Simulated assay, not measured.
Amino acid sequence: MTISSLDAVTIEKDRFFLPTSQLNADGKFTNAKPVAELSWSRILGFMNRALFEKKVNTVPSKTIPIEKLSQHQVNQLPEDKTSVIRLGHSTILIKINNQLWLLDPVFSERASPFRFMGPKRFHPTPIEISELPSITGVILSHNHYDHMDEFSIKKLKEKVSKFVVPVGNGAQLNSWGVNQDKIFELDWWQSVNVNGVQIVATPSQHFSGRGLGDRDKALWSSWVIRDENTNLFFSGDTGYFDGFKTIGEKYGPFDLTMMETGAYDEQWPDVHMAPEETIQAHKDLRGRKMLPIHNGTFDLAFHEWTDPFEQMVDLSNREWIDLMTPKMGQVITLEDDDSVDKARDLHWWR
């Protein structure tokens, strides 16, 4: 999209931090720190584990408590404060500067290219897409099925004014019927300003692909979301890398970091963070409060589904991290001490 066609929106490039994503000779994006290639041996190794390794407590045995949301409740969120609502996995609804933004919306029953197989939700979404009011924008971190969901995008496209995505992801949205004028593709260190809310694409260490032939053809990203009063960080999916320190130096401190903590495994340590690494990344970012995400909704790894929560509570107590573990659908209004306090150490997963 060209700048001349924007209404109350500007696209900017940080003159001190030039875009650092790179296309190699094969037309693929690369990380600043190389990660292991997805070889056939690794794929076969994972398939062998998935078929024959016994999983223990990777799926809840009881109903997960959630807080149902209505359109009226969303409309009544404070206009002059910032509210954050975790809807499941990495899907988050934010109200900032009196604008509604959706992060990585996945409302499907499964995180999969198929409707009949693949990881199934542990819990219903606290609010249906049909109940959502108009949304200022959707922010996508990358194109994996548990973050970029065709069903959700097609249902949301008429409610949403803008889709902010990493470079290379616009064509997929366009093929799902999203109007090209709504799509903003950003490289790392580029930003878009929407009526006082600045959205900055920042580096992450991950990969992309929705099939066997499109590995790394589209970029992945973490995001800074801020206005005059509030500064938020959304990690998307990422391994630990020194880019967190750079982001923290440039854009921190953050009032809240929403950090990936789940689906980690010794077989893929460079593209997902272990809990200790999530804590360190939060420190690097100079975060004040932390919300662990990428857990509690889908069975995507071999660890127990409660493990991310238990480890983060233990680590945050030892490291003096202000951790929030709200129920899905619970409203956190950052400027409201009572609201924030209710989201701390709930242990709802027990």
Rank of each mutant, 00 (worst) to 15 (best):
L103I: 04
A111I: 09
R115Q: 15
D270Q: 06
E310K: 09
V160Y: 04
N169L: 10
V164K: 01
W188D: 07
T63I: 12
S235L: 01
D307Q: 14
N98T: 03
V164L: 09
A8Y: 10
D307P: 02
L87A: 05
R42L: 10
V200T: 13
Q172T: 14
K342M: 09
K157M: 10
P113A: 12
E128Q: 11
H303W: 12
F52P: 06
D7G: 09
S134L: 11
R226P: 01
D314M: 15
K283P: 07
R288H: 10
T125G: 12
D216N: 15
R226C: 06
S191V: 06
A343P: 01
K159M: 03
E228R: 10
H303T: 11
K54L: 02
M259R: 00
T261A: 11
K250Q: 15
G213C: 09
L256V: 00
N57W: 07
N57G: 08
S41W: 09
S141F: 03
F302G: 08
T125R: 14
A36H: 02
K182V: 03
E131H: 12
V35Y: 03
S141W: 01
I293N: 01
Y240I: 02
D322G: 00
T136A: 08
V106T: 13
P19C: 12
H272W: 08
N169W: 01
W320C: 12
G213K: 11
V74A: 07
A201Q: 04
Y264F: 13
W268N: 05
L334I: 05
D7R: 09
F309G: 05
G45W: 08
A218V: 13
F116G: 05
R286D: 04
S5M: 08
L38W: 15
T91V: 07
H303E: 15
K245A: 13
L300H: 00
D7E: 14
Y145F: 15
I153C: 11
R42P: 04
K28Y: 00
P133A: 01
D7L: 09
K157S: 08
T238K: 00
S152V: 13
L232P: 00
D214S: 01
L323S: 01
W220K: 03
T82D: 01
G209S: 00
F184A: 03
S70G: 07
D255Q: 08
T230F: 05
Q198G: 02
T261D: 08
I92H: 01
T91F: 06
D26R: 10
N295V: 06
G329S: 07
W268Q: 03
W268M: 04
G211F: 04
S5D: 11
D345Q: 14
H303G: 03
V313Q: 12
D265P: 02
E185R: 00
L315G: 08
L212D: 01
R318I: 00
L6S: 05
A50T: 13
Y145Q: 14
P60Q: 05
R318M: 01
I11Q: 03
F52I: 12
L100V: 01
A281S: 14
L102M: 10
A281D: 06
M328N: 14
M312S: 02
V331E: 11
D284Y: 06
F107K: 06
H89Q: 09
E109V: 12
D237N: 15
I3V: 09
P326K: 15
